[in-house]
């Protein structure tokens, strides 16, 4: 009876060891002094999947203008877990009337555990004034797992 009560603890310890052994995370080093003057943007979020918030936590969003009149947005994503994950993201642009401009293009970024990755996009229309960023964990539909 005593042996049976030890088994769950041993199994838990073993699984934790295997999890830690299989995951390589990223240490990030930057200059102590911030040499940038970014235009940081406050954002509002609709969270429907807390898991995505953990694997692709958006810590900072900045905007700039490129090529004279095209809006550029950049978001820094951090994988707060220890496992590498693929994240699908896309930007939809809107004009001053709130109308969608063009169709968003989906991209996939791979984030190692703990890694901070910048994602961004430049609007391909000078009429774009605002944007919407969609984030989701990649589902990886391959011919073998349909």
């Amino acid at each position: 009876m005593k042996n049976f009560s030890i088994l769950p603890r041993v199994a838990l310890a073993a699984s934790l060891l295997l999890t830690v052994a299989g995951c390589a995370t990223v240490n990030t080093i930057t200059p102590a002094e911030d040499r940038t003057t970014p235009n940081r943007i406050a954002d509002k979020r609709i969270i429907t999947d807390n898991n995505v918030s953990r694997i692709a936590f958006v810590s900072e969003i900045t905007e700039s203008t490129v090529a004279g009149n095209l809006k550029h947005v950049q978001a820094k994503m951090q994988n707060l877990t220890a496992a590498g994950k693929n994240v699908d993201y896309r930007f939809q642009w809107y004009d001053a009337a709130g109308m969608a401009i063009g169709e968003p293009v989906q991209h996939t970024a791979f984030l190692e555990g703990g890694q901070i990755v910048p994602i961004g996009e430049t609007a391909t229309s000078p009429n774009a004034v605002t944007w919407q960023l969609d984030l989701a964990e990649s589902v990886g539909r391959t011919p073998g797992n349909l």
């Binding site: 699908d88 896309r90 169709e103 968003p104 293009v105 989906q106 989701a136 990649s138 589902v139 990886g140 539909r141 391959t142 011919p143 349909l146």
Partner: peptide, 18 residues
Amino acid sequence: NGQRAIVDVGKIDFQDFN
């Protein structure tokens, strides 16, 4: 432009071109 398109390791998919 969504997530449901098939990803084929052996070829360039349309989403890769996009």
